[in-house]
Design a protein around this nucleic acid. Sequence first.
DNA 1: ATTGTCCGTGGTATCGTTTCCATGAAACCA
DNA 2: TGGTTTCATGGAAACGATACCACGGACAAT
Lengths: 335, 335
Amino acid sequence: MPTISDVAREAGVGVGTVSRVLNGSRQVTPATLQRVKEVMERLGYRPNPIAQRLRSRRSHTIEVLVPLFTRHFYVEVLRGIEMGLGTTDYGLLIRSIEKQADRDRAFANSGAHDYADGVLIVSLAPADDLVERFHVAQCPVVLIDAEYGGLSSISVDHEAAAAMAVRHLLALGHRRIALIDRPQDPFTATYSGGRYAGYRQVLAAAGLPVRPEYEVLTKFTPEAGTAALYTMLELPQPPTAIFVGSDSQAIGVIQGARQRGCRIPEDLSIVGYNDVEISRYLDLTTVRVPMYEMGRRGAELLLARLAEPEQAQVQERLQATLVVRATTGPPADER
Amino acid sequence: MPTISDVAREAGVGVGTVSRVLNGSRQVTPATLQRVKEVMERLGYRPNPIAQRLRSRRSHTIEVLVPLFTRHFYVEVLRGIEMGLGTTDYGLLIRSIEKQADRDRAFANSGAHDYADGVLIVSLAPADDLVERFHVAQCPVVLIDAEYGGLSSISVDHEAAAAMAVRHLLALGHRRIALIDRPQDPFTATYSGGRYAGYRQVLAAAGLPVRPEYEVLTKFTPEAGTAALYTMLELPQPPTAIFVGSDSQAIGVIQGARQRGCRIPEDLSIVGYNDVEISRYLDLTTVRVPMYEMGRRGAELLLARLAEPEQAQVQERLQATLVVRATTGPPADER
DNA sequence: ATTGTCCGTGGTATCGTTTCCATGAAACCA
DNA sequence: TGGTTTCATGGAAACGATACCACGGACAAT
């Protein structure tokens, strides 16, 4: 592999001049420029990015901390990030946090300024000391689907979104509305609790009682959704509608209902959450969370901070919308 | 950020000794080791990976070329790769090739030895000159879901898998079997044509005629699947079964059939391909392609080559299996 | 006692860039 | 014409690590 000095020697110029050509400095005579470019072409020279990074003290890489990058939600966010990066040739260093240990390790290593120029944290609550480290290292951070102190972030008001979903069920005439969601877990989502709060708030506003047996917090898998449904169907008064905190769980609920001969939406209305791709094909009424948009906007915010480090931090919020499809309708068995 | 010489000065040793501690050389007195480690701890020293890479001439990064990383298939493969990498701290540089231009750019840049220590290419046919460049640069490559010359690869026999799917339909009694697939496109899949060949071969072996109107090559989206189905239903003799080259398209076919009041599997049997996660919840009979396993094994093969560069290239194949669910059954309308 | 071997260690060159400073020629102004 | 400014250019230093070489002391062998 030819180096910059090979090019310099071959073109009969100094390395400084070649470097200037490389970086598009206008301090180069057209004739020299031409000659150097020809030599670079002829030798098949390509600058060594590692050396560039070492010298310029910029890694040209963005670190993404994401829980379970296999999950639909995160795949969409990542796709958005990719788009947001556009044609800038920032590399993406994706760290998938699957276990608590991963998280600790990633948080311990990340934010070293020589590793990445900036960091995107998706759906995770950063630890206080990490935030502090980012601050002293002057490493820009943008949170996606999370909020924390004064850090830049792009997120969705899950509480309002959940309230909207539950109000939809209420408007259809449902009075026995259950919730299946994931427990608020400091390890992953920063405030999945928002959905729970929204649910409670709407029920309270409607003067409906709180029924603990209608609130199941379980894992984010279809299987867990099915299991939760089964226990609810055993109740003396089963719910007529369920608000489910993720489409994954909702899929399990739909399947379980089919299994038990429970008609949707006549016997049971279901609202999901996220609007992942599958939901459309299952005709699932759900809350559309702008996953892709959050990723894109998050990347844009980070790029802006990277270009203009003194810029103020901003907290942005996007709107979730309700997508009404075929799994919700008025309750048939009452009144 | 403290550097190696800060540590050396503070510990009263030479930089060489600190480097040896860093790299776990046994040529260090326990006492010195202890002292250096303490200083590293106290100063919060972390070696600069960029400098390490420059000097050691290894980028400690694996490049992954993947078409459309948002697609289910590739997400699964990537997850497998992540697992295959295990606890080695190789970074992953993912290049998503969405357009022809991306492909050219990625292929032009990739394989420079200072960029990545090794390359994984997923479902793409590498250009001849690229293969040549990898060879001269001594950059190990492993193809995933593709085969090419003598390069190491891990793949699936799509022809045999397709044959198996079509034979299943044949065994159920179907005689009018159609194909919906994607055109063989040199840009992405290396031999999606394998499925077509398998389909043709089984029909020929069964003495069934080739009907061009039963073979639709279209895009890999549900919408395209729906459209293809609609044109087939217009035929004077519509097929009683369809072998679909991807679950994405099959989803569209299922939806289209529902829309047209066409019962599955009584009026129409459907076999998909890949067995993506959704398929289970749609009860779709499909061919299970070991996506995750290909990714994992591909990463393992690359790691082995990285550790032992002289190792011979290997071509491995995994078996696809037929997963029979609820979308296939005997034809009802004939005999 | 002398030679040889081995091992822990320090120092320096090196990886391939960018950045900065010095230099000399050309251009400008009076 | 003399002096100042401008500007393209060459070359050295630096980024932060690793690798190599040389050196001195300890210990074994003669």
